[in-house]
Design a binder for these strands. Structure first.
Length: 110
DNA sequence: GGCGTGACTATGG
DNA sequence: ACCATAGCCACGC
């Protein structure tokens, strides 16, 4: 039982808890999972999980600036942007507007 | 086991 | 606002 497996499970669970109309950052998830120094692994797990599981709302996970850095993993177009807007998140130029307000801190729920 | 790459972040010019 | 640098970790060749 490796710690990275626990980390993956924690990340999966946290992302699944993100409420509709909100979004969070890789660093926040990593911190909530107990590893604030692994934002890259979060992104890697997202890219892998996003393809295997549709249950994981990876479109609600963006970088610290509220930029949809992972839109490429969803499809050839701006599918991620469309998904976010469909949930009530305003997106402009691949960036979430009112990011400060849309940001959902997992630590606040945990 | 080394090297390059990547859905990251923070700092600095 | 844009680019460069440094740190971190996992995966594929």
């Amino acid at each position: 039982m490796a710690e990275q497996d626990l980390f993956r499970d924690a990340v999966y669970e946290i992302v699944a808890l993100i409420p509709s109309g909100r979004a969070t950052s890789y660093g926040a998830i990593a911190a909530a999972a107990g590893c604030p120094h692994m934002p890259r692994m979060v992104g890697r797990l997202m890219s892998l999980s996003a393809r295997f599981s549709d249950d994981l709302p990876a479109h609600r996970v963006v970088n610290s600036q509220g930029v949809l850095s992972g839109r490429g993993a969803f499809g050839p177009g701006d599918e991620m942007k469309d998904l976010l807007e469909a949930e009530g998140v305003a997106v402009e130029n691949n960036r979430i507007k009112n990011w400060k307000t849309v940001f959902w801190n997992p630590l606040n729920e945990l």
